[in-house]
Design a protein around this nucleic acid. Structure first.
Length: 782
DNA sequence: GAGTTTGAAACT
DNA sequence: CAGTTTCAAACTC
């Protein structure tokens, strides 16, 4: 299939990659341009431009306190009065007074800007020939297999630029003071590029001049695809200077900029991506589009039109209730149904442009299910559960969990192959309190696979069991669950739908179900009742602990210790190796709060177990060696190495898992697949879906490095090996990780990108730059 | 698809 | 809080 050229209006001829779907996808997604060089062996980390001034607009809103949204919940339509009354007897009328209103939410993000910072970087993907450098990140990039329905050739060099500062003022109302823009160019480059990046940039500047906007996040992200000359100059400077230390100093400057951004405009709230998730989605959409950004009337109109189109599209295409989607759905839908806005990009207002290539339909579509997340209860009970439990209790103070789930079993692979495609996004966003960005976490799972229109209900018209499609990502991401309840009336936490905050729907096989819109009152009352017993009942089961940094594990093989099951499991027989175990089910390691016995959780065992077993293993090896077995020491080494590899469920840094993900065979049944973030687009249904991404560095440098020394293959990118001091390596790893996330996320949804960027922003802020050269503990605050 | 196993939820 | 029961998902055949 020939890919239309979009995203540029002319200019110098580019490489063949320009013809590739990957290029087209990215080029239309965000200001990404290819690099001419075709030397895939070279790692070119160039020119990703993130204008943090505009970034701030991503997370900002002119309305610190969104209007209160009140929903009067009248009784059910009484289509099933008998049942309803029956239930009332059980629940009690007192609990049925249900007026639910959304609380006024505080603004969460403060970021803005008179100072703009630009991060520049780019990626080189050498998918066909993964040399050592490939370990750095390529798999984090969108793979052609994911976004390309056609050409498998994705020997790719991509230039990824986000220069948000160039968005038209009307589209970026929050980026008002674009003065004294400061840019920081993060340039990491190894090898010698065939072509001078500067020239490339210039060519691209000439050739690509188009503004992009993710209209799925209408007011969130506005990308400008052309690179301003100033940027290029800086880029060139940095490209020529391979010294990593300069990078660090740039980073330091950047940090200062970020701090200043915070100080200058602390009252801005962030964008809708991390906002009130409990609102009715469509209501939210329309409100967001009205109230967030459009400080200008023109902007309002644009947003209004855009949103209306999206709503219409949803209606038109029959988006099901349970697969409520965020803005991206509109995009996806339009794309999917051939609403080739892509080609209209030159005629439509920029806000209405569709950034996705029509080719991407199949792979983007899952996001429809990926974002349904905010279930009906959550829509209706905007304040009752989510606000209290999630925001105030489950998460660290000031946090809010946003989950955009995907309906497919994350473990589905061999057995449920067709269901395997899954994308889920879970955003744990901290609320901004007192204008302070505290924390942000992006949890994003994605496996790439073609899936028809991402309506999971369509996907599962048949047997609910067989075609079960759900996501267990984070415990709260249950967009398209289906239950099989018989006795609980789907009004207890036994019911997955109810527990997930969604109504039961057709695919469910439940009996006597009250978890339906017509029983909304009942549902709400029950929820209240349950919450009165346990305020955390509807809170996410998997949370990120506040002391993430403190308890960060040394072992890079495990999931981040910061992501743990809230309550911990209590497994007795399953050894935490089956989905009976909630920890395992959610893809997190067991923690100290678990009371499991014989824990063998592949995502991370309960503390204490590992050490004991390690000692045992080493003892065994020693014994064997002592007994004169030739292979004794080797066995020991293999064991150690396996611990490093097989347990590497979560990719810690982009450069850790590329090779592994490539090597990985098909999934096994019992043991969880070795999940790699880099597997996105590679092995649909095998890994990524179950994985929780953490946009944070998770390596404890000392220990991991010591252990990794045992490896003959060091995953550390060449660039990090050469001149960098250990601390710089840490720094770069982290940065690289962040950028990789940004890059890999953006094609799917700008929200993810926004959050990733913000995450990066936040983390950088927490750096104590003074420790860079003296301490190995680079991330003291995580 | 039926039956079994399992552990969370609910109950006492 | 601990023990028991109920429940539905996960699993096995």
């Amino acid at each position: 299939m020939e890919t239309p050229q979009r995203g540029k209006t002319g200019g110098a001829p580019l490489s063949k990659f320009e013809d590739s779907p990957v290029f087209n996808f990215i080029n239309n997604l965000s200001p990404i341009r290819p690099v001419k060089s075709t030397d895939s062996a070279h790692i070119t980390h160039t020119y990703q431009s993130l204008n943090f001034a505009s970034l701030s607009s991503i997370f900002s809103s002119p309305h610190a306190n969104p209007p209160r949204v009140t929903r009067n919940l009248t009784g059910p339509p009484s289509t099933d009065l008998s049942r309803h009354e029956e239930f009332l007897d059980n629940v009690g009328e007192s609990s049925l007074c249900s007026e639910v209103s959304d609380v006024v939410r505080p603004s969460r993000f403060t970021a803005t800007t008179q100072d703009n910072c630009t991060i520049t970087c780019s990626f080189n993907e050498a998918a066909t020939d993964p040399p050592e450098q490939c370990l750095i990140l390529p798999s984090t990039l969108p793979q052609s297999s994911q976004y390309d329905s056609g050409s498998p050739d994705h020997n790719t060099k991509m230039k990824f630029e986000l220069d948000l500062g160039h968005a038209p003022a009307e589209l970026v109302p929050c980026v008002q003071n674009d003065i004294d823009r400061r840019k920081i160019l993060f340039t990491m480059e190894t090898g010698v590029q065939e072509n001078d990046p500067l020239e490339l940039n210039k060519n691209e500047v000439e050739g690509v001049q188009e503004n992009f906007i993710f209209d799925d996040a209408e007011d969130m992200l506005i990308f400008d695809s052309f690179m301003e000359p100033e940027v290029h100059e800086r880029v060139g400077e940095e490209v020529k200077d391979n010294d990593v230390t300069s990078f660090v100093s740039l980073l330091s400057n950047y940090t200062e900029n970020v701090d200043q951004l915070q100080k200058t405009q602390p009252d801005l709230s962030h964008g809708p991506c991390v906002q009130d998730i409990t609102q009715d989605i469509q209501l939210k959409c329309s409100e967001d589009s009205r109230k967030k950004k459009p400080e200008t009337e023109h902007g309002k109109k644009l947003l209004s039109v855009t949103h209306q189109n999206q709503v219409d599209d949803r209606k038109q295409h029959g988006i099901h209730r349970r697969c409520l989607v965020f803005e991206v759905a509109g995009i996806s839908q339009r794309n999917i149904h051939g609403d080739s806005n892509l080609n209209q990009s030159t005629t439509l207002p920029s806000k209405s442009r569709n950034i996705f290539d029509a080719k991407l339909k199949p792979t983007i579509s899952p996001s429809l299910c990926a974002f349904p997340g905010i279930g009906l209860h959550l829509n209706a009970i905007a304040t009752t559960s989510m606000d209290r439990t999630v925001k105030n209790e489950t998460l660290a103070p000031g946090k809010q969990l946003i989950t955009m789930p995907c309906p497919i079993d994350p473990f589905a692979s061999a057995t449920t192959g067709r269901n395997s495609p899954q994308k889920s996004l879970s955003i744990e966003a901290d609320l901004l309190t007192s204008g302070e960005i505290e924390d942000l976490q992006v949890t994003y799972d994605a496996t790439a696979n073609d899936i028809s229109l991402g309506n999971c209900e369509e996907l599962s018209q048949g047997s609910p069991k067989k075609k079960r499609c759900k996501s267990e990502n984070g415990g709260e991401s249950e967009g398209c669950k289906r239950c099989n309840c018989k006795k609980s009336k789907c009004l207890k936490l036994y019911c997955e739908c109810f527990a997930a905050g969604v109504y039961c729907s057709e695919p469910c096989s439940c009996q006597g179900c009250f978890n339906k819109p017509i029983h909304e009152e009942t549902v709400l009352a029950t929820r209240k009742q349950i919450e009165s017993r346990n305020p955390l009942a509807f809170a996410p089961k998997v949370i990120r602990t506040s002391e993430a940094g403190v308890e960060m594990r040394d072992d890079a093989n495990k999931t981040p210790a910061s992501t743990r099951h809230k309550r911990g499991c209590n497994c007795k027989k399953s050894n935490c190796l089956k989905k009976y175990c909630e920890c395992y089910q959610f893809g997190v390691g067991c923690s100290i709060s678990c009371r499991c016995e014989g824990c063998k959780n592949a995502f991370g065992r309960k503390e204490g177990v590992e050490e004991i077993e390690q000692v045992e293993e080493e003892t065994d090896a020693y014994d064997k060696e002592k007994e004169g077995l030739d292979d004794g020491p080797q066995i020991a080494k293999v064991q150690i190495d396996e611990r490093h590899s097989s347990g590497n469920i979560l990719p810690i840094t982009p450069h850790q898992s590329c090779r592994r993900s490539i090597k990985l065979p098909s999934s096994s049944s019992a043991k969880p697949p070795r999940i790699s973030k880099l597997s996105i687009g590679h092995s649909p249904g095998l890994f990524g879906s179950h994985m929780l991404w953490k946009s944070e560095i998770l390596l404890s440098q000392e220990k991991s490095e010591n252990k990794i020394h045992a490896h003959s293959e060091d995953d550390t990118p060449t660039i990090l090996k050469s001149n960098a001091s250990p601390t710089t390596v840490d720094m770069l790893r982290f940065l690289w990780h962040q950028i990789s996330i940004v890059f890999s996320c953006c094609p799917l949804h700008s929200t993810r990108l926004a959050v990733c960027i913000k995450d990066m922003y936040v983390h950088y802020r927490s750096f104590d730059m003074s420790t860079f050269s003296s301490s190995k503990n680079l991330i003291p605050h995580w």
